[in-house]
Each structure stands twice: as structure tokens, then as C-alpha cells.
């Protein structure tokens, strides 16, 4: 717990807002790590039932590969040391499964706005590795109403106000992307 609250402390709303407003592809990875760690921590706190559904997997490593970004996310959502890291590259042999798709689509999936099966049928999303593990992950994140930005904002408490603007801006971008498909 101590480690997690420490990562949260490193974040200032301004810093986060700066990141959110920048083109993601230009983002340096090191400063992103505390945000990701905090996001995972808050998700675990807000949605314990989601993570309970992941328990059956042991300690899986999901590689989330947003094809529109120059880096991947290495996510270990279950087990003793859950982690979420942004990395330039990774040894995919260690991955339980690799999930590829455009970032806005991956976020929509996480938040339950898009149907994973439909995306897969249309081949916008690709999955490699342990199909069953991906299914567990999909069913788990779908089992509760996850709102990534609300959840992450929640850790910032009263300081969250300035960030809403950033989140709304980002939502507008995503909505535009959805409409354009």
C-alpha cells in the first residue's frame, strides 16, 4: 500500500493534465509510470470484484499494444505484485497474451462502450496467445462500470477539478474517432 500512495503523491494535477493534453506519441515514458501505477491502484480499490475475477489466472502478463503509439503497456493485473508499465519493447515470449488495437478503441473496450466480440469479428482488434486468459480479462473488466478518467481523477480528490477539462477534451477526441469509423 505504501508504495502505491507514494506514486500517487508524485502526481500533481498540473503534471497529469500536461500529459493528457500532449500528443501521446511524444510522451516520455518515465514520468508516465507513476500515473499508470496510480491508475491500477485506484482501479483495484474501486473495482475489487473485477480483480477477483482475474484471480483464476495466477500471475498473467498482458501486453496491450496500442498500434497508434510507439510503446506498449505491460500489465500484470493479478497476483502478488500487480503492475502496469509503459515500455518501448518487451520480450513477447513471456506474455500470456498480446492485445492489439488503436488506443481509443482499447479504452472504449475497457469502459464497456464497445463490444469486444464485434471488434474481433471485424478484425479491428487482434489477439495472440492464451485466448482463454484474454476472455477472463475481457469478462472481468466488463463486469463493472469502469470509467477510467473518473477513477483516476478520484485519486486526486479536490484537486481534480482542472483535470476534468482535459478529460473532456480527450472524450471529444474519442467521440470524433468513433463517429469517423
Amino acid at each position: 500500500m505504501a508504495a502505491r500512495s507514494k506514486s500517487a503523491e508524485k502526481l500533481s494535477p498540473l503534471k497529469v493534465a500536461t500529459f493528457l493534453m500532449r500528443p501521446l506519441s511524444l510522451m516520455p515514458l518515465a514520468p508516465l509510470q507513476p500515473l499508470l501505477a496510480a491508475a491500477l491502484a485506484v482501479m483495484r480499490r474501486q473495482h475489487p470484484a473485477v480483480f477477483e475475477r482475474l484471480d483464476e489466472l495466477g500471475e498473467p502478463l498482458f501486453v496491450i499494444d496500442p498500434i497508434d503509439l510507439p510503446f506498449i503497456f505491460a500489465m500484470r493485473p493479478a497476483g502478488l505484485r500487480p503492475s502496469l508499465l509503459a515500455q518501448r519493447e518487451i520480450d513477447t515470449d513471456q506474455a500470456t497474451a498480446i492485445i492489439r488495437g488503436p488506443l481509443p478503441m482499447l479504452i472504449d473496450l475497457l469502459e464497456g462502450r464497445l463490444d469486444g466480440d464485434a471488434l474481433f469479428f471485424s478484425r479491428e482488434l487482434s489477439v495472440e496467445g492464451d485466448t482463454e486468459a484474454v476472455l477472463v480479462l475481457r469478462n472481468a473488466v466488463d463486469s463493472d462500470e469502469i470509467n477510467l478518467f473518473e477513477d483516476v481523477l478520484a485519486i486526486l480528490g479536490p484537486l481534480a477539478g482542472p483535470l476534468r477539462f482535459a478529460a473532456e477534451a480527450r472524450n471529444a477526441v474519442v467521440t470524433g474517432w468513433n463517429a469517423a469509423r
Partner: peptide
């Protein structure tokens, strides 16, 4: 039942 809630809603 195995489909996501986006499917259910639509």
C-alpha cells in the same frame, strides 16, 4: 451472456 455489456445495451 458471454458478450459484453455494450452488446447487451445495443
Amino acid at each position: 451472456r458471454q458478450r459484453g455489456r455494450a452488446y447487451v445495451t445495443q
